[in-house]
Design a protein around this nucleic acid. Structure first.
Lengths: 216, 216
DNA sequence: GCTAAAGTCGAGGCAAGCCTCCGCTGGGGC
DNA sequence: GCCCCAGCGGAGGCTTGCCTCGACTTTAGC
């Protein structure tokens, strides 16, 4: 975490030198991860400091801005997610992709902050999106080449669809799984791909009009 | 809006008697709709009063709590959505259902507050969910009976899926449409329904385990 | 017109959260 | 063991938003 992460992102914070300070630094990161997960990006910094057993001044010493703190937490989370893409690489194309997506969902479902972040627009968030694309897109492309994924969908499309679903409220885990299964069936290649076009104005489902990944 | 809405919900506020007061009441409702749409449930009441050209005291006179104000706005919005279910009833089963869902998406996509509300748990929100179910479920059931919708999906499943997608950020309208099309393809009945089950633990996609609508 | 009832308004008290500042403390190099 | 400076912490000033209250204004019925 000190200077570079596996995502290749520079962080604006440095892990301190002294042992006691390093303990505090780590405690703050833990408390922040917890708080951001539960309360979203707006979690109270004062509460985070308290949860870490540390004064508010110490929080600010280590993370001069809320953004710096959030970025540090966030990069760690995204890192973890990216790494899990390697673990599934040996599965058959569709299974690899679907399994990764399911991890993605499990991972962000309970973390309000990650979803908020994915929908935001800032340097750091763009970088994290980019890291996710680097990790996940090969799985997607492989599945698409194996004709397991419909050809008129882009990786970015699927990622956004899944992240929307992941962040919605569900009655229980079973429902989330069921809904995810439905959505993934839509992603799979099958003969009736253009069936819904009947109700859509004709421009909607034609392939090729897809905007570049990560634009905006 | 005064006492009963088309959703059958009682509102805790009364439209005032005097002409000037009624003007203020309506201005507040408009300003609030606007503010909730843009900033979500947490929009500043002081700003809303100002936007309505009215003192903060007047806001509180008409809507004693933030909840009262929000409910009044929200019920109006949901009402409108419910009414639109009638307009599509004459289309063929699938088209009727899909068209309504698309309206649903168009409607809530830009309204943060509605999505937040749909994920909340309170008397009013439950009532509004219920109103939406009353309006939309017949369309769903009809499509399912016509074998246009897979049999292992519930209306609540689809509603939550769609509302998640609607609230996600997209690059542009085209992407939203495209993603919605993908998701709806998953909802349609087709022979390979259980295809993704391979990667899912066996309990996940079996039908019949669906919990009651609106529970929790 | 008059007047009572209805309605308006915003100052101000309160709470929560942000962030700075500076006197104090104790870790660790010598 | 000493000492110095990295690090600590929390009081306090600031901002933002909530909500109340009571002195004032306007409407509408007569």
């Amino acid at each position: 975490m000190t200077e570079k992460s596996a995502t290749g992102l520079e962080l604006p914070v440095r892990r301190p030198q002294r042992a006691d300070a390093r303990r505090n630094f780590d405690a703050l990161l833990d408390a922040a991860r917890e708080a951001f997960a539960r309360n979203g990006i707006g979690a109270s910094l004062e509460d985070i400091a308290q949860a870490a057993g540390v004064g508010i001044g110490t929080l600010y010493r280590n993370f001069p801005t809320r953004q710096a703190l959030f970025d540090s937490v966030f990069v760690g989370e995204v890192d973890e997610l990216c790494r899990s893409a390697d673990e599934v690489a040996s599965l058959p194309p569709w299974e690899a992709f679907a399994t990764w997506l399911r991890r993605f969902v499990d991972y962000i479902a309970t973390k309000r902050a990650i979803h908020e972040a994915l929908n935001q627009d800032s340097e750091m968030f763009r970088s994290c999106r980019a890291a996710l694309v680097v990790a996940g897109e090969p799985l997607f492309v492989r599945a698409q080449k194996a004709a397991a994924v419909r050809s008129d969908a882009g990786f970015d499309d699927v990622l956004r669809m899944i992240s929307g679903i992941a962040s919605a409220a569900f009655v229980d885990e079973g429902q989330r799984e069921r809904v995810l299964g439905i959505a993934l069936d839509g992603v799979r290649a099958h003969p009736r791909t253009a069936a819904t076009a009947a109700v859509t104005s004709s421009r909607d489902l034609v392939s090729g009009g897809r905007p570049p990944l990560l634009s905006r």
